[in-house]
Nucleic acid binder design. Structure first.
Lengths: 230, 230
DNA sequence: TTATTTTGTGTAAATTATACGCAAATATAA
DNA sequence: TTATATTTGCGTATAATTTACACAAAATAA
């Protein structure tokens, strides 16, 4: 085996969603070359853990969060992306529901705390993390249209308009409410509950629920999830 | 920085296509725990090269081939995937045109040589390479339907039926010739040349050519490549 | 010259996507 | 209490796309 001095890290880019805004979870590392700069959560991989375990561990250590959805995004390995030495980082892409977003309102910024930032109000980021965020955002947008992934950004029960606003705001498109609803309901994996919610003003909305089991059943048959917009 | 004893490798899974069959490029490593077993080309990353450079270098060294298309596929990092020590491997996914496939017919199996294997006649593979192949095949199939990637598996000029057979054989679907042709031609990036080819028997076919520039132009506008099959 | 093989092409029917507006239910303000 | 503003819930007609389907032309082989 060669003598190799390459370090292996993982980074996590975690999206949250609330009130028509997409958020990203950031931390300020306590040490390292970007010690006082906002960064994605992440760190070095231990020798006896899988990559996924490493991300989950780092996430828990640095932010206290656990995710609804997590998948490998891309591996960033350019020479020089860490000023100290060669570090290759496997980035993971995750989604959480709004219950995890409480820190956004709470945190009164202890310097090392994790914080949520709205996607279009990100602070300057360390390393090549802007590139990672861009890649993740692309992936999120792409996946919204061919995987029912939006539900991992919503609470268990939600009014239909929340789903609609999620698509509209993340994809930055206008959506025809009637056609969108028709389309989603035609899939048959969204259950209308008998609960209602009063959103403050206007007519109260019925709450809906994503039936994951049903979705998985359908996927095995000849069913294709796809949402396109003009 | 932590002391970390993880090694970083790259692997390449290269697809070729000829006469309605999909091929994968394999080698027999000269050393290591799978010294006499067919494996994907690959090897350790040098400290001063990017991941992509590493794959391209290994490919050239081990198989003498250069590719038409190459993208990062996935990073395989489970503990124990290499019996010697922790090795994390970034797998790349590549496509070549049939001119590179000559080794298939030529090679009279010098033990260390590279060889093409039909996808459904693969020998037993070392490491976790069966998993990598499976992942790559999934990716290839998925991409065929939303990126005009099939052309990288064909020669510069090709009869239309080759394209059709490529889709049919890789996706294992039946295709309606007339509808498929209508669909592809409607995109407007396939040029009919005035060359013809006599395939041996039957009516000679006109040759077609993928106009990449035109495709890229279209992509910038409001154009979506998509091919679905029942 | 006849049979066989492969290419090339059009149309009608079914399905899917799009465009579009009004009434019901609530909260708030007058 | 009544009027106003806001949000939800819903249907239909038209356009666009997808699907199903068959036969003639050009070549080779027998």
């Amino acid at each position: 085996m060669p003598v190799q001095n390459i370090h292996l890290a993982v980074d996590a880019i975690i999206f949250g969603y609330k009130k028509s805004h997409l958020f990203v979870l950031l931390i300020k590392p306590k040490s390292g070359p970007f010690a006082n700069v906002w960064c994605l959560p992440g760190g070095f991989v231990n020798e006896e853990e899988s990559l996924r375990q490493a991300v989950e561990r780092e996430l828990l250590e640095e932010t206290g969060i656990s995710v609804n959805y997590l998948e490998q995004l891309y591996t960033f390995g350019n020479v020089g992306r860490d000023p100290r030495k060669r570090v290759v980082s496997v980035a993971y892409f995750g989604l959480v529901d709004p219950s995890k977003l409480s820190l956004v309102e709470k945190t009164e910024t202890d310097a090392e705390a994790a914080r949520w930032f709205a996607i279009n109000e990100l602070p300057p980021l360390g390393y090549d993390h802007p590139e990672i965020v861009a890649t993740a955002l692309e992936r999120l947008r792409a996946k919204l249209s061919y995987q029912p992934i939006g539900f991992d950004l919503l609470p268990d029960k939600f009014p239909f308009s929340d789903l609609e606003n999620l698509y509209a705001s993340i994809l930055e498109k206008e959506i025809d409410r009637r056609n969108f609803r028709k389309k989603i309901m035609s899939f048959g994996f969204l259950r209308e509950t008998d609960a209602q919610i009063a959103s403050g003003k206007g007519r109260p909305a019925n709450l809906f629920q994503f039936d994951k089991t049903r979705y998985e059943q359908l996927s095995k048959e000849n069913f294709l999830f796809e949402i396109k917009f003009a």
